Each structure stands twice: as C-alpha cells, then as structure tokens.
Simulated assay, not measured.
Amino acid sequence: MVGNTQDMRVIVEQSRRMGWPMWVMNAPTDAGDAQGNATTARPPVAWAFLRPIAWAPEACSSTGDLWLYVSRDWQGSGIAMRMIRRVFRECRRHGFDAITCWILGSNRRSLSLVRACRLTRWGNLPAVVDYGGLRFDLEIWGCKLDDPVWLAHMDRLERRHARLDARRSV
C-alpha cells in the first residue's frame, strides 16, 4: 500500500523502468477534493499497474498481477471501479490472458471491488502477512480474460456505468 507521494513516485519509476503498463487518474478538474473543496492542482487520486506475477516469470508471463491504489480521500467515490474497468479493457493488449489480485483478507473495500467484478477466489494463504506483529491472510483473486461468463458480466457492467456517466453529464 502506498502511504505517501514519494512511495508513489518509486512505484511509477519502477513501472516505467520495467515496461509495465500503468494508469494514473487525477482528480477531476471541476470536483475539487472528495469533500468538495476547490483545488488548484490535479493530484493523482488513483493508480493501477500490471506486472507479470513473480512466481516462475518465464512460465507465467501472461498472468498479470494487478495493483490498484486509491487515495484515502477518494475511497468510496467510484474511482476504483472506473480504474479497474479501464485496466480490464486494456490488459489483453499488454499480453495478459489472466489477471490476479493479491489482497489482505481484512481489506474489505478491495474484496468488495473484486467481487463486484466477479473475480474468483483462487486461493488463501492463511496468516502469511506480518504487519508489526499482526498477522493477516493473503487472498488471491483472479479471472481468465477469455471466460465467457466473466466477459458477459463485464459487458453488463460497462453498459451500466456508461448509462450512469451519461446521466451525470446531463
């Protein structure tokens, strides 16, 4: 998880250096911050990148590991869903045929997002993450990008969000 702007810069640089696809979303120009305060700059409020999973990189190079971050002020605003839909539309173009998301078992927002996208829970690594002496499960969620059931769900999701975006612009 990215805690500050410097952490984000390091991740952006690593993504560029390795050639991993990366998406950054800035705050909307007319929205200000999540509380409605006017802002002059358009800081990044969300980013995502894909990289091949680390396990057996030669054998698993077409399986992507999706990282997604939304700044605390923008969580719950719908930006994560907008970002993940964009990534899913573009990930095959970058050579991936399957996507995984590795999520802390206690991260309810991220788990809700992958469930809304109809990813499947592919695995659970019990209590393998240690944050300051606290142990957490690591859940692995994923999908095959050519799964017809998943594709149909994503098409419905795209149409639904297109209708919502059209209503907002009126």
Rank of each mutant, 00 (worst) to 15 (best):
G3L: 13
Q6S: 12
R9I: 10
V12I: 14
E13R: 14
Q14N: 10
R17Q: 14
M18K: 10
W20E: 03
P21R: 03
V24F: 10
M25V: 11
N26C: 13
N26V: 11
T29A: 14
D30C: 02
Q35H: 11
G36F: 11
A38C: 02
T40R: 13
R42M: 09
P43H: 05
P43K: 07
V45I: 15
A54I: 00
E58N: 11
A59N: 01
S61G: 10
L68M: 08
V70C: 10
S71T: 12
D73S: 13
G76D: 03
S77W: 04
G78Q: 09
I79S: 01
M81G: 11
I84R: 14
R86A: 04
F88P: 03
E90H: 08
E90D: 12
R93S: 13
F96S: 00
T100V: 10
C101L: 15
I103V: 15
S106D: 15
S110W: 06
C117D: 02
L119D: 06
R121M: 13
V128M: 08
V129N: 05
G132I: 05
F136K: 04
F136V: 02
D137E: 12
D137S: 14
L138G: 03
L138A: 13
M154W: 14
D155H: 14
R159A: 13
R159P: 07
R160P: 06
D165Y: 02
D165T: 00
A166W: 12
V170H: 11
